[in-house]
Amino acid sequence: MSVMASKSSVGLRASRPAHALFVLPFLTVYVLLLLWPLAKGWFISFHDHDLLSNDSFFVGFQNYRELIEDDVFHQVVWNTIRFVLFSVPVFVGLSLMLALALNRPGKLAAFLRAVFFCASVFSVTLITLVWQLALMPERGLVAQASAAAGIPQLPWLTSDLLALPTLALVTVWWIIGLPMMLFLSALQQIPSDVYEAAALDNASRWRTLTHVTLPALKRTVALVAVIEVIRQFQVFPQIMLMTNGGPNNTTRPIVQFIYEQAFMQLSLGYATAASQVLLAVMLVGVSVQMWLERREAAQGARR
């Protein structure tokens, strides 16, 4: 038996280098599409790189110093953070409520699930065109409905105060389907025995929701929050098409700033430095979100 065991262990040790061949395709794609662009981006951010002439000069931290002194960059960072603060809580709360409401059998619930999810597969061009027509002053659907109800018309896309929240609501309407489906999937993973036990204890619907359903969804809430923080920090196309960063730069996000610096000002080094700042902000946002979730989970476990 010992001889057979030693032979098998020798065979396993001998085959370990061959096991690397199974992960080699993944590692190759991972390095080429993630690690190499990340390293290349850091390298370019320390250079004055002209995209048109392809000339590059090492400038050290000059690009980052200029970003610190750039008032426009300060504003676009604040715009992006505000957009995340507007949209992410709505994404989490509204998608959870929709999932709870539509997590039931029947053709109507299935139809409504399909309706909410189908909006997320539409192109951003179509979505922005529809909402631009709906929010058009005086002749748009929203303006006509406001006039019929006797409500004063609001400058949804031309007001410094209303433009960014309006874009956040449009974004939520557009892609609410994905987080809703994640919550629906998590709800269907909860064992029915738990609800049967709650029913035997004469637990009310509210008590069942707060003591059974929501605790079982903590991981999904954290997952949806992290996904949406990452996605909304990268907001760009709907803002570019609907307001182009206006009015008065109050809706211009970081990604649009990076695009303009790279492809309009042809300053690739400066744009790359801004993209590295965006990466750092995203990492901070995700880290804070995960820390809060872990802290809440730890407090719940102590209780």
Rank of each mutant, 00 (worst) to 15 (best):
R113S: 07
P253N: 06
W156T: 10
R113C: 10
F61R: 00
I190N: 03
F183P: 00
A143Q: 07
L241F: 09
F43G: 02
V286D: 05
L200M: 14
T250R: 11
G93Q: 08
L33D: 03
A143G: 04
D160S: 10
L67T: 03
E196L: 15
Q188F: 04
S185V: 10
L178I: 14
N79W: 00
L96G: 03
S6C: 13
V288S: 01
Q234A: 06
A297E: 05
Q189I: 03
P237K: 13
A119M: 11
V212W: 05
L85Y: 13
G300L: 09
K107H: 11
R294V: 07
R205A: 13
M240P: 01
L209C: 01
F46P: 01
L33V: 12
R252P: 05
Q189P: 00
H211F: 02
P253R: 14
P137L: 14
Q188W: 00
T251R: 14
F117V: 02
S45W: 00
H47Q: 13
A145C: 13
I127P: 01
G285R: 03
V59E: 02
Q299I: 04
W174I: 08
D70Y: 04
N244A: 13
I254T: 07
N103M: 04
L51V: 12
H211N: 13
A262K: 03
R113G: 02
V226Q: 00
E260N: 10
Y195D: 14
S95T: 05
M4E: 11
L12H: 09
R65Q: 13
W156K: 00
P253K: 04
L27N: 02
I44T: 14
E296G: 04
A203N: 06
L141R: 08
G11V: 04
E196R: 15
A274N: 11
E296M: 06
A198E: 08
V76A: 07
F43M: 10
K7L: 11
I258W: 08
S287H: 11
M282G: 12
L154E: 09
F257P: 01
A168G: 08
A271W: 03
F26K: 00
V115D: 06
S87L: 15
D201H: 12
P89K: 08
D71H: 08
I151N: 15
L266A: 12
R104T: 14
P155C: 09
F183L: 07
Q232T: 15
A110W: 02
L24Q: 02
R294N: 07
V84Y: 12
V115F: 14
G177W: 00
I190A: 03
G60W: 11
I151H: 15
M282C: 15
N79H: 09
A5S: 09
L27Q: 02
R231M: 10
A5N: 11
L154F: 09
M240T: 09
I230D: 09
A101E: 09
A20F: 12
L96T: 07
R219F: 07
V286F: 01
I81R: 03
N202H: 15
F117A: 05
L133G: 10
G140S: 07
F263L: 10
S159H: 07
V212T: 06
